[in-house]
Amino acid sequence: MTTRVRHTVADHPATRLVVPILAAASAIGLWAGIKAAFHISDYLLPSPFAVLRAFNEQPRVYLAATAESAFCASLGFLIAAAGGIALASALSIFRIVERGIYPLTLLFQMVPLIAIAPLLVIWFGYGRPSIVACATIVSIFPVIANTLAGLRGRDAGLEELFAILGAGRRTTWWKLALPSSVPSMLTGLRIAAGLATIGTIAGEFIGSDRQPLGVLITSNLRASQTAAVFASVLLAACVGFALFGAVSVLGRVILARWLRGV
């Protein structure tokens, strides 16, 4: 009797692209269907076409807003990435400092962002500075936590190998701990990419001297332009997706060197 490896439809490479598109299309179809079936008013749930129309009325406004939000989210993410990796490195090198500082970094995670966003305006200034600060604050903790876990969780056997070969603490950190931490560091960065976008929109709710997506959302809410709110929200989600995708691609490029299937 011969054994055969079963190939399911899910193994086909085309499904990576086709299935998500089909899923999105059916979600939109469901959305339009529910609205029609239950006669939901435009104020509560605009149709997909109304959202598209809202976008088409002022595409430049939306695209400019998206660019502005993407800029702040990216900048906030980059600061969180650099700062988080640097802080985690310092914490892993100086164990004593870690005991004191690590619980404090939890504050970034625990403090409700909406509560301190107005404070950030006072500290960093109205507009971009406080928005970027918002994005950084919500996204830095996963970078710290995951990088630190990666730096600490190195293989005991490899650590012994380095000790046998007479490697000092600094060499062991550079040549063993840091490379070992890359996969979990990238996990932290992927989480941070999504959070930076959320932080940006939340920061923009407080206000901005420009017109980013967060401002479009609040002003259109006040004007009861639900379709315009939907368009802005969907664009904000796109910003998050794009940032997440960029980090994932970067991760694949780095990890492809030594790991399969990540």
């Binding site: 293989d155 056997g157 490899l158 190998l161 490379p179």
Partner: peptide, 12 residues
């Protein structure tokens, strides 16, 4: 030294 596991660095 050679150990029970190869102990190679996966990124090299």
């Amino acid at each position: 030294f050679a150990f029970q596991e190869p102990r190679l660095l996966p990124w090299r």
